[in-house]
Design a protein around this nucleic acid. Structure first.
Lengths: 238, 238
DNA sequence: AAATCAATCTGGTATATACCAGATATTAAG
DNA sequence: CTTAATATCTGGTATATACCAGATTGATTT
């Protein structure tokens, strides 16, 4: 290529996005292979991959390991300050949620969580690890750390739906105070592996500490999202 | 390289980070040049850049256009639901904030903002564009759209500090309701240029709608952050 | 001492090529 | 028809190399 003064990969990025728009490719539809694009734009795979990386960073396309590139669906609107949960949020917006519980166990509170929760290290705590998908696309791995004091036998329940619904309806627990942290964080190690993305992929980290009305520890939550799957939306009244 | 079964760029990533840690390189300290690293790790610049890209994605290092790679300082803790503002937040955490007002003008409300604010299109509105830095590193460009009804003459004030402090102390305005949206968003076009980063760099987008006690439009804010500079921390009581 | 110019250092972009490994489709065997 | 082996398609990783453009440094001139 190289006609205008813009870098080739920028031109490819824009023309490719134009092509996608013109062909009205929608959520989860596949793009032509990299080699095909390289010959179509008369450049090399390296440069094409640079262009694809741009669209990926913009959240417009995503890759599925060694299968190809796909158009990213609309972002999910998600309010972490409410407790309607992933399952209901996804359903309400017309998508199909699914959850796999990768592990659940009763364990001892590690020191970092002890510091956060205010409970002594070694206190029993439920730990649930789940992978969640929207329309079959893995978007999130989530660690739940739950205080077992108020919800004995939680682990024998079905954890493939909303844990908060369980806590609310079965155990009559109600959150009062939350402290939420959110920041961009690359997905590496087990999170990247669980989500089936390349190590170093852009992600969003979100953690949530929930206390009851007496400021007792109810739950701590760590969520690792793929970067293009959600839009955090918080209502804050003062 | 290539000794273990791990990809070379992963090994370089880890060894480089080890080297940085061992040499106690702190915030904003410079790394050796890419060519230097390539020869040190006995590989090519392309692979080194892949490793650097990993550490960049993890928020551990950042690049300054054609000057080199630097160690990322600690993230700023930032609560968008409070109105203490950027300037005070940065100062309180021991850093040096600075702001440049890139433009400020009285303009007419565009349609997208009319929809959000509930006011008719074309209504006069202040528009302030600012670039903000922490310890001389550009971390944020910010668009402020302010309802001039309650703060006439705002633009003749100094906008290099907290606008909210101005609104509060000079105009006695107090926010009541906020609606905040946050999501990862690549920096492109004018935002990338203003921040001096490459197009497609990872960023965090944050927008904030602020209303007064009568649900009247006070301010709308769009912030484009570099991805590694902040940790959003929100208190939510129910 | 200050301003100007040139050399040099840095990351940014680009081509060409090769092989690997997982995913998928195809074919052959039971 | 089901299963297993195989071929093929895909993106992932890696090397070698070249030139460009902005940033910095150092020398030269004024």
């Amino acid at each position: 290529m190289q006609r205008s003064d813009l870098p080739v990969y920028i031109q490819v990025r824009d023309q490719l996005w134009l092509w996608i728009s013109e062909h009205r490719l929608g959520g989860q539809e596949r793009l032509p292979a990299e080699r095909e694009l390289a010959s179509r734009f008369n450049t090399t795979r390296v440069t094409v991959r640079q262009a694809l990386g741009q669209l990926e960073a913009e959240g417009k396309i995503f890759r599925s390991n060694r299968r190809g590139w796909y158009v990213t669906p609309e972002r999910l609107e998600y309010d972490p300050s409410r407790d309607i949960g992933f399952y209901n949020t996804v359903s309400e917006q017309g998508y199909t949620p699914s959850t796999e519980t990768l592990s659940k166990e009763l364990t001892e509170m590690p020191s970092w969580l002890a510091e956060i929760s205010g409970l002594p290290e070694g206190t029993p705590v439920y730990h649930v690890l789940r992978r969640r998908s929207i329309d079959s696309r893995c978007v999130l791995v989530e660690h739940n750390y739950i205080n077992p004091v108020n919800c004995p036998g939680l682990l024998s329940q079905d954890t493939d739906h909303s844990i908060w619904e369980l806590l609310r309806e079965t155990y009559n627990l109600h959150p009062s105070k939350r402290q939420i942290e959110i920041y961009p964080q690359a997905l590496t190690g087990i999170e990247a592996e669980a989500l089936g993305v390349n190590p170093g992929s852009a992600g969003l980290y979100m953690q949530r500490l929930t206390l009851d009305t007496d400021a007792n520890f109810l739950e701590f939550d760590r969520e690792y999202w793929v970067h293009d799957a959600l839009k955090v939306s918080v209502q804050a009244d003062q």
